[in-house]
Amino acid sequence: MNKVIEIEHLYKSFGDRDILVDASIDIFQGENLVVLGRSGTGKSVLIKIIAGLLTADKGKISVLNQSLINISQKELNALRLKIGFSFQNSALYDSMTVQENLEFPLVRNIKNMSRKEIDKAVNSVLDSVGLLQALKQMPSELSGGQKKRIGIARTLIMNPEIMLYDEPTAGLDPITCIEINQLINDVKENYRTSSIIITHDLTCAKQVGDRVAVLFDGNFKFQGTFEEVFKNQDPRIKSFYEYNFTEN
């Protein structure tokens, strides 16, 4: 399988605090990689480096065979068109309707589109997330789950090759979580994306992950299928599992 993201010996720190320490991992075409880890272990930092929002201090990282080290702004923007980023809090533009939110990246990156083509693209992605009726609504009128769906739709409108999900089920009720997990699987199937899903929700990890990687102390300590990882008797893994499935 082709590698779409290659990360080798990555380091990132903020001030005196080390976040990623010698982190290495590859993501293959068409797979959903779930990155698990406690809060503050650098999961979100990792995908922000992949999206070019943060730069690594040391190490190698390449996305779709394009190195992110010393990349120009023009090259980064071209690469970003192939990456979709679903934010933890959806990050919908408050002052715009759902339609304007969805059109926003489209009309600014693809010139000379007719009104008809724009409307067709907007309706198509809204349909794929099951929210056609929300077209004229403002983000403040949507529920948490609907906002997540619209956030995902906004990235899908550019037909990305890679999807990055930052805590897709955080703050949602269990039923909506299952719906979002299903949507992530549908996106993979219908848009043929490779994805990284950042979460500490093991139900989500089990439902969407082809492979699971666990981040401890800024480093990927365990990788494999969900079952392989959680067969491990390491106390950190066990406590993670017990917290999700026993205490909760």
């Binding site: 922000k48 999206a51 070019g52 929002l53 923007n77 071209a78 970003r80 068109l81 990456i83 980023f85 934010f87 933890q88 809090n89 990050a91 919908l92 533009y93 408050d94 926003f104 990246p105 600014r108 990156n109 906004r154 990235t155 550019m158």
Partner: peptide, 13 residues
């Protein structure tokens, strides 16, 4: 603080 500016950046705007 709600990452809307980051969202613009990652959509190459």
């Amino acid at each position: 603080v709600t990452e809307q500016i980051d969202a613009m950046e990652v959509s190459a705007v």
